[in-house]
Design a protein around this nucleic acid. Structure first.
Lengths: 343, 343
DNA sequence: CTCACAGCTGCAAGCGCTTCCAAGGTACAT
DNA sequence: ATGTACCTTGGAAGCGCTTGCAGCTGTGAG
């Protein structure tokens, strides 16, 4: 394998000049630059990243920590991150910590800290105070997506606001019997997001003077199948049925729709359903939702990071609210005419 | 940040001895080893991977090339790979090449070849002869999952066999009007898998003396939404309706089920549907399928790789057929009684 | 008692780059 | 003509490890 030395020889230049020519840093005459480039191309030379990193202290590698690439939101974000990173010539080291506390711990300790990444993107990771300190201590830019990350920059959507908007949409259609499917305990612990959306929901309900009935507050694990099971319980039970369900994610909304169909309920005539996400499947189900462009969030995170990395200036922590947009499809409509309006 | 030098000083040993003690290679007295370990622990020392890799030529990093982490199969495999790799102390560099030819090209050239990975796992990537040569040329172990990779080890399921099994299942139930939903052209180009499954289907049909009707051969892009659209065309058209559909993936099977429901068809009474994959959603739809444990395939690939890496022996290319198992649920049943048996 | 050998250890030479520094060249102002 | 400033270039010192080699010690055999 050719090294920079070979390139230098072939180009009739010194190693130093070749290095400068290829990296684009430092002043090199156009002639030298071209010579170096040609020689490199002819030899099929590629920099050794290890050597380069060791010498320069930079890695061209960012670590991405996600709870599970298997989930819609996370894999969407990773795609956005990956594409942007690749284009910028960076590597992406993936830390999929679905294994639980233990693995996650070892990731933070053994991997991230080993000076191998220039920056880290933490997706929806609820880190402990100590973990955050650890991360900040290695003095690398960090950006968090979809979760709070005190001390680091974050990109997030207005969870509370969009939850309110979703609920209001239902309310404005005339619904008053609105159920909310939120994330369950396991999720809450890690992501906190369910709570925020729930709060938004409650606020909208309160603002409208509507009661939040506890039996209509159900939860699931953010998957279609989990929501399906939960929704079946709700819809199949003897308690009064809501006329609308606001699910904290599209997958849960879809699970709800599937459950509704099982009971012969027509969406939206018998039951309106709204979600949050902008999941690809939304179209199949005519799901009204709030699109959060997860890919875009990933891309933005990278740009933030790269700006900081190149600029060199220690950009202080900034919170960016990522825009979302309402997508109205056919899963929401006016509530069914109440046979006996309780008034 | 403490370096190995600091550890050496603190332990009262030479750098060389500390290096040997910590890496476990070479002969070191128990006493020295312990001292080195303690000193390292006290200082919170972690090896610099770049320096270590540069000096040793090993990276402790494997590259994983996938078409898109956003898809069920790929993200499942990545999860399996990630978990196994992390446990072994390896990093995983993700190359998500969903951007198309161009990005994929740059990945192969600029990234993989930069000596940064010890090995590569290529998931369902149909590489050109030249690309394969490139990969093999860098002399790193490669294992392919779910796609042919001439010259490299591969892990794959018996696509043709399970397709036959799926079709036979339908045939044995009494179906003769069987449609097949395969992957569409875009996929075929990259993965070849659709063709293999299709061949299996045809073989089973031929063996049973059944006709493969072209109008019942439809295709989609392996997604629920794509299959949904395709299935709607099939089921909504004026051509005679099949009594069963064999979809080349669970997601496509689910899309088919959703389409069937739209037309008021009951699965399995009016239409049987079978898929392949073992998708989590299968349960919600009562989908009969053939489980291929994608995660397990990922884990196995890593073990293969690591064996080769540690053993050092150039293990020659081996094809491993990964076991699958039939999961019978409620989406398949005997065909509806034919009002006018055409005989 | 001597010798061969094996187990430990430290020295030092890199791994393949980046970058500081100083030297040489050129252009322009004095 | 001389000085100054700037651009360009090469030499060489590392970046933080790994590892070949040689020296040193202690052991058991001869």
């Amino acid at each position: 394998m050719p090294g920079i030395k070979d390139v230098a020889e072939r180009a009739g230049l010194s190693i130093a000049t070749v290095s400068r020519a290829l990296s684009g840093k430092g002043n090199v005459s156009a002639r030298s630059r071209e010579r170096a480039r040609n020689a490199a191309a002819e030899l099929g030379f590629v920099l050794s990243y290890h050597a380069s990193s060791l010498a320069s202290g930079r890695n061209h590698n960012v670590g991405v920590v996600v709870p599970s690439v298997h989930r819609w939101f996370f894999s969407s974000v990773v795609e956005g991150v990956s594409a942007t990173l690749l284009d910028a010539g960076y590597d992406l080291t993936l830390y999929n910590v679905s294994g639980g506390q233990e693995r996650r711990h070892s990731v933070l300790n053994d991997f991230l800290l080993r000076k191998r990444v220039d920056a880290v993107i933490a997706v929806s990771l609820e880190l402990s105070e100590a973990e955050i300190q650890q991360l900040l201590a290695i003095h690398r830019p960090i950006v968090g997506i979809g979760g709070p990350l005190p001390g680091a920059s974050t990109i997030r959507i207005d969870d509370s606001g969009i939850a309110q908007a979703a609920a209001r949409h239902l309310i404005q259609l005339g619904h008053s019997k609105i159920a909310h499917m939120t994330g369950d305990a396991a999720y809450e612990q890690d992501f906190r997001l369910p709570g925020t959306r729930q709060a938004g929901f409650k606020k909208a309900m309160n603002d409208a003077g509507l009661a939040v009935r506890p039996e209509w507050q159900i939860s699931a694990d953010f998957t279609i199948q989990g929501a399906y099971a939960s929704a079946r319980c709700l819809l199949g039970s003897s308690v009064e049925r809501p006329t609308a369900v606001f699910a904290a994610s599209d997958e849960m909304a879809i699970g709800t729709i599937l459950a509704a169909r099982d009971f012969g309920l027509r969406v939206p005539y018998d039951l309106s359903v709204i979600g949050i996400d902008g999941h690809e499947l939304g179209e199949v189900f005519g799901l009204t939702t709030i699109d959060q462009d997860a890919r875009g969030q990933g891309a933005l995170a990278v740009r933030r990071l790269l700006d900081g990395l190149d600029g060199g200036t220690d950009t202080e922590a900034a919170d960016t609210e990522f825009p979302t947009h309402f997508v109205i499809r056919s899963s929401t409509a006016v509530p069914p005419a109440d046979p006996a309006p309780a008034r």
